[in-house]
Write a protein that binds this DNA or RNA. Sequence first.
DNA 1: GGAACATGGCTTCCATGGAAGACAATATAG
DNA 2: CTATATTGTCTTCCATGGAAGCCATGTTCC
Lengths: 195, 195
Amino acid sequence: MEQHTEPSAERSAEQSAAHPPDHVARIQAAWRRERPDLDVAPQGVIGRLHRVATLLTHELCAVYARYDLGEGEFDVLAALRRAGAPYERAPGELAAHTMVTTGAVTKRIDRLERAGLVTRRAAAEDRRGRVVALTDAGRELIDRAFTDHIRNEHRLLAALAPAEAAQLETLLTGWLARLEPAAAPPPSPPPPTAR
Amino acid sequence: MEQHTEPSAERSAEQSAAHPPDHVARIQAAWRRERPDLDVAPQGVIGRLHRVATLLTHELCAVYARYDLGEGEFDVLAALRRAGAPYERAPGELAAHTMVTTGAVTKRIDRLERAGLVTRRAAAEDRRGRVVALTDAGRELIDRAFTDHIRNEHRLLAALAPAEAAQLETLLTGWLARLEPAAAPPPSPPPPTAR
DNA sequence: GGAACATGGCTTCCATGGAAGACAATATAG
DNA sequence: CTATATTGTCTTCCATGGAAGCCATGTTCC
């Protein structure tokens, strides 16, 4: 982000015709005017990343909704499905895999169980444990939903040229690798994510 | 919290030693095993983007918390601050600028008003309208918090080389430009974002 | 064996935001 | 100039998830 800002006009931004300054650029311009003492360049990356992530999540959820699933439910079903037959996991594992607290998982399972998509039963060896399993209906649903989901991701990514997508993946992978350890809380190393 | 990836598993992916497969790579591997009919490549980008965004948000919120602010409150204060003196905006504008519903803005303003950081008064011309203004305390707080916030963003972005950051910004800007219009709801064009 | 501590799941309470509608005030049609 | 539509804000209700603590079970160590 190169730019002078200076009081007065702040639409001068970078490009001219093809790029009307986007929302993030406008915010940066305002900050440069109000707080010329700060270098707000990082917002160019972090702000847009945040925005893209929000838009993508919104688009993704639209597909989940077709199957009457929220993001959380989809994540749990997906984690079970990807575990492979017999499509079972302990609640604690699901919490780890989907990056939420166990309390949140309990509620997600409650909803999925009520919808007949998963079942809960006692664990064989450890009587504290439980086993959550996909029902046939659940398996069937997540298979259809996931197929649709991937189609949707392809659509969203189609806005980028293959080379751009590859570049982006490389950059994000690298950043993530350096960010994850830092964000790891004391006890367990770094927790997983979902989807 | 180690992570095996299920029976067999194919870590073959791209890299070898230096890169232990990250969480997203493990998820992809599992899907390739379970659903070889699908091309899950987009997850490499979308999944990591989601993860990076989540981590960043978490780190950012840690700074807001130092000032006893939630993300929503920070966004509102920042929007008011960057409006420039006299640091006023209508609730509707704030909703547009921060990308949330007006209902959410009402509640954020409630909290900020209770904390003595903003005031609400009737608008001069339109008696339906209201004007939200930063108090001196609010102005003082957001100036300190924002300074700290930007320092934090610099720290987070430091994990990338300048050239990488620039590349990333370019890619995200382009993607965003092609994503925003698509996501724009019928009535108003595309709404703004925040921070 | 038994006491202290750890673990796994769940419950309770709380915080936040969306959706939809209530209301008051303003703009527009006829 | 009224009747209708629209706007701007707020209210209510609901959904989701985090934090922290409960309870039953397991593990460790003496």
